[in-house]
Design a protein around this nucleic acid. Structure first.
Lengths: 279, 279
DNA sequence: GTTCCGCATGAATCGATAG
DNA sequence: ACTATCGATTCATGCGGAA
């Protein structure tokens, strides 16, 4: 067990082993996109869909241990089609992780606007992935203002004139009132987002087989951490999460089994630092 | 057991009982949005989340029996937040239905563009629901060309700008679905859609509390049936699915426990027929 | 005929309060 | 302690009438 919390390192190894050395409750956010199943077995050792839950659970137990009670675990995952069906390993994983003590707080949908092309007789292109939110505790840190988005253009017309019913709606039996604080809306141009994320995949990242766009970890890092918090990606690949975290003024830990990816990530992190010095 | 297959009826009763009288393998598509859980206590008797799977499974067994081997079952559902978590009854339902013999072929995402407003410290607004596709057999009927869309969100704009009466007039001229109109677009860039559906809820339907937009069953009816096929909605509510099916030249069966909703659906079906005679 | 604008209203969720 | 009820919070759409 390390005496100090490691920070800003890319560590080569299986996160199951690497995290054993970490103290309890030291990470503010875990955000990761693990190797899905044996689709990419030419790069990672592929895990068969039927074995996926058993493979993942001991690692999830370590994540649970190192995460702070106020922290969040975001798991970007999607089950593949297998024998003409969607495989059930993600569903089973959620149920098993709850038995470990995780709370399954929310499921965000990542809508991939430019999804992989193709045509099959029995299904359409898969344009979405799950971003599962797990927590240790019902109370966790969430900075909603950091991810607000511009309001729809409906507001321009809507708020010009306040109707009489808008003002009194609250008093007439509160079914679901919009009346109470309508005046708060005047001048407001930002609203809170929903649990559906519209983000394009990055096709430009040719060095790593997974297309994990930097906007995805960025959004969750904004939402669940502040500066100097510690972000962990236990399957960091070519380093996207770590790079984004660093750029955003958070500390990072990246772990990956492939030395070549770790080296790639470290190089990228050095280059970014160098570029920033130049600016 | 009825000797003949019922067609074009709205039947009042619990689908569990009503379907007992139906022969095996007579339905081409089941598309439905069942009462979710204890949400609508004042209209339907609420089902507690913990009891939901047990409540649903015997009904799913009947659906399996009456569905043709080439048919499809589309289940529109979303788990509610419960004690700060997403409840797991939908996940469990999928696993249990597979034990019954269902194949879980696909999960479509219905992105609700105008979702329910609100703000909470631990979550954002819920803007999506599941449309789970189940089949009896790996080989099933799917008419992908029927739902092709031109590049550039044509369908979205078109459906948005057409009033309901416009649609009726249009349909009776064009016979089946959008077939006639779409022919104008062939030769332009038509693409297959993805498994993410963008549709707004209809908030103006004041007769029924569920906002099941007609575009949702319409899309699946186009995708999984042809004219004169039989469409079943075992929780038909105020009749949306049946009305759409009829308009599209399919046969329908609607079942609901509430006599007032059944009567509403029957009235609406009569009115539509009357309007079409006038045109 | 179009476009614009006013308006009602949603399959929501949490936390506090009451029984 | 555990459950039922109630108030507070918040967007985006379709419809219908007006310009």
């Amino acid at each position: 067990m390390r005496l100090t919390i490691p920070k800003n390192e890319i560590i080569c190894g299986d996160c199951l082993d690497v995290l054993m050395d970490f103290p309890d409750n030291c990470v503010d956010l875990i955000v990761t996109s693990p190797p899905y199943t044996d689709r990419r077995n030419h790069t990672y050792g592929g895990i068969h869909p039927d074995k996926y839950v058993d493979w993942f659970l001991p690692r999830a137990a370590q994540f649970l241990r190192v995460l702070r009670p106020t922290g969040t675990f975001i798991l970007n995952i999607k089950e593949r089609a297998f024998n003409g069906e969607r495989h059930t390993y993600v569903l089973e994983l959620i149920l098993e992780m709850r038995k470990q003590g995780w709370l399954w707080t929310e499921e965000f949908v990542w809508h991939k606007k430019n999804c992989y092309p193709g045509k099959w007789p029995n299904r359409f292109r898969d344009a979405w992935e799950r971003c599962l939110q797990f927590n240790k505790d019902k109370k966790f840190n969430m900075y909603q203002e950091a991810v607000m988005v511009p309001v729809g253009d409906w507001a321009e017309r809507r708020l010009k004139n306040l109707s009489e019913t808008d003002k009194i709606r609250d008093e007439s039996r509160a079914e679901s009132g919009f009346g109470k604080n309508i005046s708060n809306w005047i001048g407001r141009d930002m609203v809170y987002p929903t649990n559906v994320l519209h983000m394009a995949t990055e096709c430009a990242n040719r060095n790593h087989s997974a297309t994990f766009p930097s906007t995805l970890p960025e959004w969750f890092i904004k939402l669940f951490t502040v500066e100097n918090d510690l972000v962990l990606d236990p399957f960091v690949g070519s380093g996207t999460t770590a790079i984004v975290a660093k750029r955003m003024g958070r500390h990072y830990i990246g772990i990956d089994t492939k030395e070549e990816y770790c080296e790639m990530a470290r190089n990228e992190l050095r280059n970014r630092a160098y570029q920033e010095v130049l600016l």
